[in-house]
Design a protein around this nucleic acid. Structure first.
Lengths: 126, 126
DNA sequence: CTGAATCCGCCGGGATACTG
DNA sequence: CAGTATCCCGGCGGATTCAG
């Protein structure tokens, strides 16, 4: 077994840092996942996430738009109406995170159990 | 097309929140990815990530251990030697994030281009 | 309805020093 | 080598208010 830390590992870690950092905020992946089911309006997303602030929803959507993952379409009507949807690029990201989302659903219990056991062990060192 | 926000979307978003939040910190996915290539010692990881502080590496590893994703093995020798490795559960997570990691590698350029275009458009509203 | 702007608390996370 | 302890700062993100 090759036990030395291969150069490829370091290289790969560096390469994915910027984008992975970008996606590692509190809401981005969640919004992408939600937009996977179709075009949504601002308050639709707000209600769906339900504990995101206006501010963070706006900022998250702006960043996703900036990175070419989401489109923002303003309909000039009263009251204003803005629709958000995944771009083709965003759709590929959706596919990429699907396994991760599935993983969280399938292993959530297992993680919770492990965490509970760890906490219990930590509380009684005697 | 079913354009109403389906109940399933809200439900799914809520279900994955806790674990996704847990994984959405700055370093966890990166460490999991690095441990995918085999057992590593503390300073090996430190050098591999290279701009993580001692503190954050320790905290990140502790949390991964707590959640049953990583094992911590202390060898009672001098100097001390501690080895970290993925648990079977951690290995399943590695598989789950593989597509996301691949995505970042394949679309990094595209994101950078979109971002640059967005910034340029923002700077010249005239 | 969809934001922008402001204020502010909290904590993620870096730097440094110390320990077994 | 592999941590722990302490200090401290920046910015994420919530609450609220204002605007088109």
């Amino acid at each position: 077994m090759d036990n030395a830390l291969p150069a490829v590992a370091e290289t790969r870690s560096c390469e994915i840092r910027d984008v992975l950092d970008r996606l590692s905020d509190k809401w981005s992946l969640l919004i992408v996942e939600l937009l996977g089911t179709g075009t949504r309006r601002f308050n639709e997303l707000r209600r769906a996430v339900d504990d995101i602030s206006q501010r963070m929803l706006t900022l998250t959507l702006r960043r996703l738009e900036r990175d070419g993952l989401v489109t923002r379409t303003v309909h000039e009507v009263v009251p204003p109406q803005v629709e958000y949807a995944l771009t083709p690029l965003g759709a590929t990201l959706l596919d990429a995170i699907a396994p991760l989302v599935a993983w969280t659903r399938e292993h959530r219990q297992q993680v919770a159990v492990a965490r509970a056991a760890y906490e219990r062990a930590a509380e009684r060192p005697a």
